[in-house]
């Protein structure tokens, strides 16, 4: 698997952040060192995705660019993916193609 040295793989955007941003696609098992801490990817991390910088508990505000971008509703270990499965907005809920269909009020009347 990828070694610790080489081109930048995870980016710390702001010192106050508790997530790192992948700048290239990382395979499961990839080891990355950032600011003296080592992380091993437990799943593939596509470019632009977020990885926990520390072990983070439920309710933690996720910080990116030095500002809060939502709160955790599931805990995540350092190096784990932070995305829709554990992070939610403090403003308006996000939606996926599937949840758009589930929330469609007309669907319940049309049977399966």
């Amino acid at each position: 698997m990828t070694s610790l040295a080489g081109p930048l793989q995870l980016l710390l955007l702001h010192p106050a952040d508790n997530v790192l941003i992948s700048v290239q696609n990382l395979c499961a098992g990839t080891k990355v060192e950032v600011e003296g801490l080592c992380y091993q990817m437990v799943e593939p991390i596509p470019v632009g995705y977020k990885v926990a910088r520390f072990d983070l508990s439920v309710g933690t505000k996720i910080m990116r660019y030095g500002v809060p971008i939502g709160s955790l509703f599931h805990p995540v270990k350092a190096g784990g993916l932070v995305h829709l499965h554990n992070l939610q907005s403090d403003y308006l809920a996000s939606h996926t193609r599937q949840s758009v269909i589930q929330q469609n009020p007309y669907r319940s009347n049309s049977g399966e």
């Binding site: 809060p68 403090d90 403003y91 308006l92 929330q103």
Partner: peptide, 26 residues
Amino acid sequence: YRIMGFGSFAPGNADGGLTTLEEKSM
């Protein structure tokens, strides 16, 4: 947007690694 039921956040935004509206906003 709250009354409309959806924020300005498309499924493709999440496919690209964005998770929340305020993350996209920043």
